[in-house]
């Protein structure tokens, strides 16, 4: 049974609560959209009852499939559902401001310290660690596509990689082409 809920009354105290809860979640969540979304859901659905569980899941599915940052997409879609355009703006601002502030401060210190030889050694080591992270993600993603045992996705991977890495074809052009290929030939559910 879906617990009943009513769309929130759009007054100043609601907007402030929306801003505050979203801002705090965004400010203290390391790890991007997939960590932020469950926390937003807990606040909006379970604690405040501003939106239903099913509707949140549907909107999050859209947020993950549209372009852009998943957390920002989720804020836009949920904010719009709960309180229209103003809700969207409030939720989006609250999502974007914490990283904007944090990274402005960090880039200031980065410029200050990046020339220091000891910091450079640490950063160099961390670059290798970060490389390991992205290798790990790449391996998992390729394995997932291979497990599907479908020809088309593998051709797209090979073609896109070669065009991008060896022939420097514009990435946005490649994304457009692959999106069109998908629209024409990959609407079947087996490609999901």
């Amino acid at each position: 049974m879906e617990p009943s809920y009513t769309l929130p009354v759009r007054n100043r105290s609601f907007y402030w609560k929306l801003f505050k809860s979203t801002f705090i979640i965004s400010a203290f969540t390391v790890g991007g959209g997939f960590v932020i979304i469950p926390l937003l859901k807990t606040k909006y659905v379970d604690e405040y009852g501003w939106i239903s569980d099913t509707e949140t899941l549907n909107l999050v599915a859209i947020a993950q499939s549209m372009p852009g940052v998943v957390a920002a997409n989720a804020a836009v879609l949920l904010g719009y559902r709960m309180a229209g355009i103003v809700g969207t703006i409030v939720a989006l601002l609250a999502t974007v401001l914490p990283p904007l502030i944090t990274l402005s401060v960090i880039s200031y210190f980065y410029d200050l310290f990046a020339a220091n030889p000891y910091i450079q050694m640490i950063l160099k080591g961390m670059q290798c660690g970060a490389t390991a992270l992205i290798i790990n993600v790449a391996i998992d993603l390729v394995a997932k596509q291979l497990r599907k045992k479908l020809l088309l996705p593998i051709l797209i991977i090979l073609g896109t990689f070669a065009a991008n890495f060896f022939f420097d074809v514009n990435i946005m052009l490649l994304i457009l082409i692959d999106g069109i290929l998908g629209l024409i030939w990959m609407r079947n559910a087996k490609y999901n």
Partner: peptide, 29 residues
């Protein structure tokens, strides 16, 4: 609906592009 098809084409494309970025990271490291 149709957005699904586009996404199905884009997913492998993104895999390829992330592999390319991964190689740039390795070359730098």
């Amino acid at each position: 609906g149709p957005i699904r098809g586009i996404l199905n084409g884009l997913r492998p494309a993104v895999v390829a592009l992330i592999c390319g970025a991964g190689i740039s990271f390795i070359l730098l490291a």
